[in-house]
């Protein structure tokens, strides 16, 4: 067992040595693979971030009920009772117009403007949390609540979030198509690299066959080479994506501050990173395997 392991490690070492023997060529290949993979991986990372943002904003869908600015305490009480009795309503929080103004002052930096106002322009409001979260039920509930006496406007807070989510779905599909295409490119690059290697090592392959090498023995270094090249390309892609996200975070931080929110791009998660590396390793191996299967049989000793 340890002997078999030592043999495999030996082949792996030889494959790595071969890769770094042609420094520039090997590096260029890894760079090409890295860039090709970084495109879908980077887009995926951006989408994941956007999705996180959407989930954060629309996590608990709410319906805001705005009352008329001249609503009296009696009206508010009556509405509160009606909401509590409504079967589809989970809870309702009353936001007094004074409190709403205070929040606006604190969270947006518009304090100067607000101080300058003659009177509070905001109405009283109820923030209603519904029992059911799906889009259709929410829409029906919103219609019902709009009909209640004293309600001026009923607004579904997360409507835009649902639209964005649909857009992200579309983005995911685009990433998938891109990933498939560029994976094919990676397989093709490896295929060609291995083909050239087989050609330059024709003599060694022929002699090895003549002195009793099995096909497995001849194939192994090429497969290891392909897998290693894929893995290093994957690491390169990961580095490109991570560095780009970090680089984008700075201007993005300034931008999001203008909108009074704090939004940072998160790098690829551990699971996603691992998937990226394993996938690129597998693709490299696959390209090498296809190439070896196609070209080794053409070298027969004479």
């Amino acid at each position: 067992m340890t002997r078999a392991l030592a043999l495999h490690l030996g082949v792996l070492r030889a494959a790595l040595r071969r890769m770094f023997a042609s420094k520039l060529g090997g590096l260029l290949n890894i760079l090409v693979i890295g860039i090709a993979l970084s495109l879908p991986a980077g887009m995926y990372a951006l989408l994941q971030n956007a999705q996180g943002l959407v989930a954060q904003l629309s996590g608990t869908p709410q319906i805001s009920l705005f009352l008329a600015t001249d609503a009296q305490a009696d009206d508010i009480d009556a509405l509160r009772k009606q909401l509590a009795a409504h079967p589809a309503v989970h809870g309702a929080e009353f936001v007094a117009r004074e409190r709403a103004l205070e929040q606006l002052k604190q969270s947006t930096g518009l304090a100067d403007v607000i101080v300058g106002l003659e009177k509070n322009p905001l109405p009283d409001a109820f923030v209603v949390s519904p029992k059911q979260g799906n889009a259709q039920a929410l829409d029906i509930l919103r219609g019902e609540l709009a009909q209640l006496p004293g309600v001026e406007l009923a607004q579904l807070d997360s409507a835009w979030a649902y639209k964005l989510e649909a857009l992200l779905e579309f983005g995911h599909l685009a990433v998938l198509i891109l990933a498939v295409l560029l994976s094919l490119a990676l397989v093709a690059v490896t295929f060609n690299t291995i083909r050239l290697q087989i050609l330059t090592q024709r003599d060694e392959i022929e002699v090895s066959r003549l002195i009793g090498a099995t096909d497995g023995f001849i194939r192994r270094p090429f497969l290891y080479f392909g897998a290693m090249q894929g893995l290093l390309g994957g690491i390169m892609a990961w580095a490109i994506v991570t560095a780009s996200l970090l680089l984008l975070n700075r201007p993005l931080g300034e931008l999001s501050q203008l909108y009074a929110s704090q939004f940072v791009l998160h790098p690829l998660s551990f699971g996603d990173s691992l998937s990226l590396l394993l996938f690129s390793l597998y693709l490299g191996w696959l390209g090498a395997w296809l190439s070896v299967a196609r070209h080794l049989s053409q070298i027969e000793p004479r």
Binding site: R3, A4, A6, D203, E206, A213, T214, F217
Partner: peptide, 24 residues
């Protein structure tokens, strides 16, 4: 002869043993 010129005399002779999986 079919010798390999990309490696030393020693490594040329080593090849059959590598193929058979001999201990280093």
């Amino acid at each position: 002869h079919k010798l390999l010129f990309d490696r030393s005399v020693f490594d040329n002779v080593l090849l059959p043993l590598q193929i058979c999986g001999f201990d280093h």
